[in-house]
Design a protein around this nucleic acid. Sequence first.
DNA 1: CTAAACACGTGACCC
DNA 2: TGGGTCACGTGTTTA
Lengths: 582, 582
Amino acid sequence: MGSTKRMLWDEQEKSMVGAVLGGRALDFLITNCLSNESVLIGVGATDDSLQNKLSDLVENSSNFNWNYAIFWQLSQSKSGDYVLGWGDGCCREPSEEEEQESGGGVKGILSLGMEKNEEEQEDGVKQNMRKRVLQKLHTAFGGSDEDNYAFGLDRVTDTEMFFLASMYFSFPKGYGGPGKCFASAKHLWFKSVSDYCVRSFLAKSAGIQTVVLVPTDFGVLELGSVRILPENFELLNTVNSLFSISTSTSTTQSSSLYPRVINEGRDESGISNAVQLPKVVLSLNNNGRTHFREKLAIRKMDHSSSINFPIVRNGVCGSSTWGVNQGQGEIFAPNGVRKDFRLNNNNSNYQPQRQVQMQMEIDFTGANLRANSVRPVIGEPELAAADVEADQPSDGRRPRKRGRKPANGRDEPLNHVEAERQRREKLNQRFYALRAVVPNISKMDKASLLGDAIAYINELQAKLNVMESERETFGSSTSKDGSANSRSENRHQNIRVPPPDVDIEASKDEVTVKVSCSLDTHPVSKLMETFKEAQISVVESKLAAANDTIYHTFVIKSQGSEELTKDKLIAAFSRESNALQI
Amino acid sequence: MGSTKRMLWDEQEKSMVGAVLGGRALDFLITNCLSNESVLIGVGATDDSLQNKLSDLVENSSNFNWNYAIFWQLSQSKSGDYVLGWGDGCCREPSEEEEQESGGGVKGILSLGMEKNEEEQEDGVKQNMRKRVLQKLHTAFGGSDEDNYAFGLDRVTDTEMFFLASMYFSFPKGYGGPGKCFASAKHLWFKSVSDYCVRSFLAKSAGIQTVVLVPTDFGVLELGSVRILPENFELLNTVNSLFSISTSTSTTQSSSLYPRVINEGRDESGISNAVQLPKVVLSLNNNGRTHFREKLAIRKMDHSSSINFPIVRNGVCGSSTWGVNQGQGEIFAPNGVRKDFRLNNNNSNYQPQRQVQMQMEIDFTGANLRANSVRPVIGEPELAAADVEADQPSDGRRPRKRGRKPANGRDEPLNHVEAERQRREKLNQRFYALRAVVPNISKMDKASLLGDAIAYINELQAKLNVMESERETFGSSTSKDGSANSRSENRHQNIRVPPPDVDIEASKDEVTVKVSCSLDTHPVSKLMETFKEAQISVVESKLAAANDTIYHTFVIKSQGSEELTKDKLIAAFSRESNALQI
DNA sequence: CTAAACACGTGACCC
DNA sequence: TGGGTCACGTGTTTA
């Protein structure tokens, strides 16, 4: 009874969640939760460039100093519907000036929930509820109790509550602020958050006063500020240039933003098959080589500088096909943990039967609190399961207060155990990360995980070997493809898959060669499909081969005007082709 | 001083090794060791078929009941010289009848070493020396202290000592028994092991009385028995048919026996640049799903059945180019750990710059000792480094006797720590195994290993993604190829690399769509290439899309007659098309 | 209730 | 001489 169960929402939970998130959000989440049966996986791959853009919008004062930025990424459900799910996000606590400027409503708003929470109740109950709500969301959307991140938070601020809860939302086209924005393809500038979204209550609680939704090619960018900001078209231009396809400046330009969705498990409830399944893994980013870092205090610090704010970013699990390779340089980034993060993003795609989970990680890049003793509990299921009556950690061994570390002075023997703690934690961190990238984990214990990882690596190696040798029989392809790290020596085997079903006929003075191949895998398959959908008939088709390129030329005809046809096609293709970059 | 250093052989060590292995072997090893500077890597790829053949010769009574079989695999040094190195091996303890039949000399022979070991000394000193010798060999040939396997052995029998020590030998052409045999290309049948090899002393110690060396195409097969066996040509025929290339009956028939050698590091000493670098990883094979298994007691059991013997097999690391695929069915063997082993064989080939090590693994398939308390120490560097004066572990906490477990009666508190020990050990085991399959390990600590493994997995996934999408553009090959475990469900998403460079032009009354895509990945690329090679010009090309197929039609023209052109094309394509099956 | 799994503190060791 | 890693024994939790 103490530990909340996954699927079911009992009344107490409902009221609690409603109190924290607001009634509309509660309803929305409950209908979207679907008892964890139908999960939406792999809501597209995001990479650092997206994250950088978002954090740029949030932290870079040259832009607008938004308090948060969320990219709602377009995803496609099994039934073909598009759904906007959490793509990436970045938030920061409002500065003191901002809090003053915003009219002081930030604090305490949350206590005006559905149930009348008395104002005099101190943080304790509120914090407790927030954590429990986050935990409930976590488990409701498929997370396991162990890796619940909420209890790793020292304290959940209003902003964080809004932000963290937002991760669990997803919006079908036309629903919610992002869904409406994307459906209308027009940006929305809310000077009041009263009804911009089902998350309005939460936004209000966080003191957000201005919210802007901007549609992009693959999703919706949501920006929010605690200040009242006038509509600003320069921002829109900036956003457009940042998030449009052609102007992607990412060096890696590899991971695809293009969404993919697999509906795993039965899909019996048809409400909305867009259910994110965030599994939050808290990670500490020891940038550089400093070996000690505050664990995961997402909370704003007492004298919050403008940078010590969490950056939440999602990684993709599930079978998201993400573009090409993601640049070895990125993979072998010198920074260990950072590397893990990055790599967690490009996941899987390998075992569709896997119980994949959307994986989020909290990056504490900016958390520059140098305290070495505030080590909030993390990964302690006993805390997660315990009935957290008071906010004070019931854990005896770390009697840390909630607010600040006692700045203990260099206890040598203490340092050892602390270092050891950190080592263990880092190891566990890696284990989590490994769990994220290895599909088909037989058991959840570490040894099995390692075994599965080894097996998986070998499996991948074997597959790669097979494919590589297959491909190399194909001849010249590898020679010009620089990224194809092919061992060019064993060229001699001929295993390639040929153009199947080649039919050759010789008539009087010419030979006709007919090749039939699967539409699925043909380069022009999407084109043909589009033609069909748009009821476009192909008048003439040609194919020419140059040095290393094949040119298809199609002369087509459709019902409407030619310009309209062209625009239609352009629109259709633009969506496809930019899956290449980003 | 207590811990043996890697490269150097101090006098004490020399005498000890000489005592255990014999003087000639000592000299041989010292000259071949080369201070670990010039290591011979990747001495060819072996696979289960080889292992099966060997174990067949050893364990299958229908053959000859040899006590051990070693395949000395031909390798090529940097300078072009061929060297016979440890390829694969299999051994078993002699049965009791065999021991009787062999004249009783098996036991105690070792004590007639260089230094006069008094016979009355019990196992203690001998076992201690053997382990230390194995450790010395292990480190001398580049193994790290941590993964020394010798201390994982409960007890090193004579046979095992001979067998395990043999792994560190390698023979230039003409040197040693295998080297002479291969040089002469004639088999050798020794009815006395006195001088069949530099390992004669060891062989004698193990009671081996008959040794046969048979040259094969890529190495030398060495068989030994504790019995005196008359020359037998049927055996030779069997061996020839087993190990010759053409008659390989292995179903996989994939892994190349062909050796390759990379000489890593400087090669300043020119004695013999063939130095194996065995890094032995002890692995327990929990066949089936039984989750508990005796750890690694290589020793023969008290009532040794005929199957509980170790099978040592080598895996290939390094950039050995080994053949095609090795049969998915093998890869996806249901047995988890076994799979790991198998897969460890098809290793690497990925990071040739990696500090590769020849990796051996001991397969305890038959080790059916059900004792769960004989837990030999393994991976305890402090033990390895400690000066083990007596065989009794100077470690206080494991007062286990040497010979047999005391059959402790369910000590509850003891059992806990024992279980925990085992858990740790299993974990470390996996870590070792993971280290074996992950190239480019930045640091040797666990966290880094995990990070590297994650990075590597992602890298592999990314590569596979790229290749898969590349391959899928190649046409319907996957549709009829059952083994291409393509996730057919998410066929509908357009994850595919889209037709890039779509150019759309609208003219007066028609729209032209031009698609240019890489020739490499186009289904007809091979066709076009063939056209070009055959100087065939395409008169007309058409493309039509049916339900799920795209039809290319080419009307072509070439110089010669049409029938000849047709035949030429058919010949060209037939070579491709039968690549479908495999 | 047992067995497995994990986290923790501690001693040791190694640059 | 300390920062870092490791293994060990132990207490606790979970299935």
